[in-house]
């Protein structure tokens, strides 16, 4: 049967898909290309230059914002992943769980409601209880909305896992803690790892919540970038953008690769 007569072949699909991938990557490529532009005006190309990378790396406000973002994302990732791991264990492995469905909905709630509503809610709540520490506010809010992103891969991993290994371990008189540490945790590690990576990326990426909660001393990276965009596009902004694009592509690749390897081993 020739391709022309193959009923599953739809004409024009190949070029359309090719165009689709150009559409996905061209905007990112444009930020990268313009970051090497020597000219101060973004749209006017005068020559290749690394000067904007030097100025980005010497930008103290940028480095402070990066430090704030990394601190918040680091702590939020640990908190969110721990809470998500406990919740997934309880929901999948626990017996006679009361409110199982409700609890699962609550874990996933940050995915269901618009982020701006949650951001406003945190802002009002923190101001009512008089929480002043900007870092603390960011960490609590970020931990909450990162939890479902850590929860979903861990849950998927736990659900696909047979109980045999854990039962074998218990038959050999391993204590519960030993079984968890030596059997369960290594088996679900790919899920925990990709969950943690996703939580980290989501926290680093967040703008809406951070923008409402951040105060003078605690500006996160996306909030800082927003203020740069507001003051007009600049080649330095493109250099910062390129560094971030490269960093997130590498992190996401590692997270997805670990998740894919875990899924294969699971089969």
């Amino acid at each position: 049967m020739t391709r022309r007569h193959d009923v599953k072949h739809y004409p024009g699909l190949g070029p359309l898909v090719a165009l689709f991938f150009v559409y996905l990557y061209a905007p990112l490529a444009i930020v990268v290309i313009y970051s090497f532009n020597a000219n101060r005006i973004v749209g006017v190309w005068t020559g290749f230059s690394l000067e904007w990378y030097a100025s980005a790396l010497n930008n103290r406000a940028l480095m402070n914002a990066l430090k704030t973002s990394l601190t918040v994302a680091g702590v939020a990732t640990v908190v969110a992943t721990t809470i998500a791991l406990l919740a997934a264990l309880a929901i999948i492995r626990g017996r006679n769980v009361r409110f199982r469905k409700l609890s699962e909905t609550v874990v996933n709630l940050p995915l269901l409601l618009p982020e701006i509503v949650l951001a406003v809610a945190s802002l009002i709540f923190f101001s009512l209880i008089g929480l002043q520490n900007g870092m603390m506010k960011l960490i609590i809010a970020h931990s909450a909305f990162c939890t479902p992103f850590a929860f979903l891969p861990i849950r998927a991993r736990l659900q696909g896992m047979s109980l045999d290994f854990e039962e074998a371990s218990a038959d050999l008189y391993a204590s519960r803690w030993t079984t968890f540490r030596r059997v369960t945790l290594p088996l679900i590690f790919p899920g925990v790892f990709s969950g943690a990576m996703l939580a980290f990326l989501i926290s680093m990426d967040d703008f809406i919540t951070s923008n409402l909660l951040s105060t003078g001393g605690t500006t996160t990276l996306p909030v800082y970038i927003f203020s740069l965009i507001r003051s007009g596009t600049s080649p330095e902004l493109n250099a910062i953008g390129t560094l971030l694009i490269v960093a997130s592509l590498i992190l996401a690749t590692v997270a997805l690769a670990v998740a894919a390897r875990g899924a294969r081993n699971n089969d």
């Binding site: 905007p27 990112l28 930020v31 749209g43 990426d205 970038i225 927003f226 997130s248």
Partner: peptide
């Protein structure tokens, strides 16, 4: 390849279109 751009910061993806 479809998933990858999604992990780039949203503000940068919007900024790219501003350019």
């Amino acid at each position: 390849l479809v998933t990858l751009p999604f992990w780039v910061s949203m503000i940068l993806r919007v900024y790219a279109w501003m350019i």
